[in-house]
Amino acid sequence: MRVLVTNDDGIDSPGLYALARAASSLGWEVLVAAPSTEASGTGTSLASASGRSRIPLERRQVDGFEAFAVPGHPALISFIACQGGFGERPDLVLSGVNLGANTSTGILHSGTVGAALAASARGVSALAVSLDVEWDGSAPLWDTATDVARAVLPMLAEMPAATVLNLNVPNAATVRGIEWADIAPSSPYQVHFESNGDELKLRAVKTDLEPVPGTEIAFLADGYAALTPLRSVAAASTSGLPSPAWPA
């Protein structure tokens, strides 16, 4: 089993190599390729800092892993790997471990999830892994996230090609279990904008909304890891929609 491990926190993130070690411990062949710098919030962007024609690769050896620092977004790295750009096409793409949960509407913007969705669009199954670290300076427990991921990976390997799973793990020494979870209808964080006319300042504020039962946010609050299957690209139903008029 050959796997690509990538992320959106950048090539120097400890979570990246924690996930690589978890995959390696299963006896799988691991290639690490991640953004040269942080690329959080880039979703499924295929942008590169160096343009489209030439993308320089910085080769590294970290913790015994062959690694590439790429001046591009995680979905682009996933796309390149699934096209054979780093050698043999991977059987799986693993993205993370992200510093912070990827839940609710935040999934749409997540570079961590974006890399997994980009793999799925090219027929490769993928797992996005995120650790629910609060913005209060709490130390990330990477081993907790990778212990849970290691339990999920053999199942993912047996699932149909192009499967995408989004795994969120509580930042706790003990996890009560792993539960299939729905996507929460609203994020526990709301972004506020402040402007002085010349610049905008963004500030995330945690709300006091009660988590909806059965969602990733509710399971995380109760100490469970939340596992959510995602679709890469799917059309909504056209049933009941009016017929477009043409010519107008």
Score class of each variant (00 low, 15 high):
142 W>C: 04
4 L>C: 07
154 P>G: 06
240 G>R: 09
189 Y>H: 11
75 A>F: 04
74 P>M: 07
25 S>L: 03
182 D>V: 01
186 S>E: 14
61 Q>N: 13
26 L>A: 10
144 T>E: 02
236 A>G: 14
180 W>K: 12
201 K>G: 06
19 L>I: 03
45 S>A: 10
51 G>L: 03
93 V>G: 05
144 T>K: 07
14 P>K: 02
134 E>R: 15
122 R>P: 10
13 S>F: 03
92 L>G: 14
90 P>Q: 11
6 T>I: 05
204 A>R: 12
218 A>D: 09
55 I>Q: 07
181 A>S: 11
174 T>M: 04
182 D>P: 03
187 S>T: 01
160 P>H: 02
245 A>W: 09
10 G>V: 12
63 D>A: 06
60 R>Y: 01
172 A>N: 02
126 A>W: 10
8 D>C: 10
30 V>M: 12
142 W>Y: 08
166 N>P: 07
246 W>M: 14
218 A>H: 13
196 N>A: 01
69 A>G: 03
27 G>S: 12
60 R>T: 07
145 A>V: 03
247 P>G: 06
63 D>G: 00
124 V>Y: 05
183 I>A: 00
169 V>N: 02
18 A>T: 04
120 S>W: 08
45 S>F: 00
181 A>M: 03
171 N>W: 11
135 W>S: 15
60 R>Q: 08
10 G>D: 05
166 N>V: 00
167 L>E: 00
205 V>N: 10
110 S>V: 13
180 W>A: 08
246 W>L: 15
207 T>Q: 00
6 T>E: 08
87 G>E: 06
27 G>R: 10
147 D>Y: 04
215 T>V: 04
52 R>K: 01
44 T>A: 06
233 V>M: 12
169 V>L: 01
132 D>M: 11
59 R>P: 12
51 G>V: 01
56 P>R: 07
248 A>H: 14
214 G>C: 02
151 A>L: 09
202 L>C: 10
240 G>D: 11
130 S>M: 02
88 E>A: 15
61 Q>G: 07
222 D>R: 12
240 G>K: 11
196 N>H: 03
230 L>M: 08
61 Q>F: 10
136 D>K: 15
82 C>E: 04
95 S>M: 10
81 A>C: 04
60 R>A: 01
182 D>I: 01
67 A>Q: 00
141 L>G: 00
20 A>Q: 04
150 R>Y: 07
41 G>E: 05
1 M>K: 10
47 A>C: 09
239 S>C: 14
43 G>C: 01
73 H>D: 05
231 R>L: 14
191 V>H: 08
117 L>Y: 13
143 D>G: 10
2 R>T: 13
195 S>V: 11
13 S>A: 14
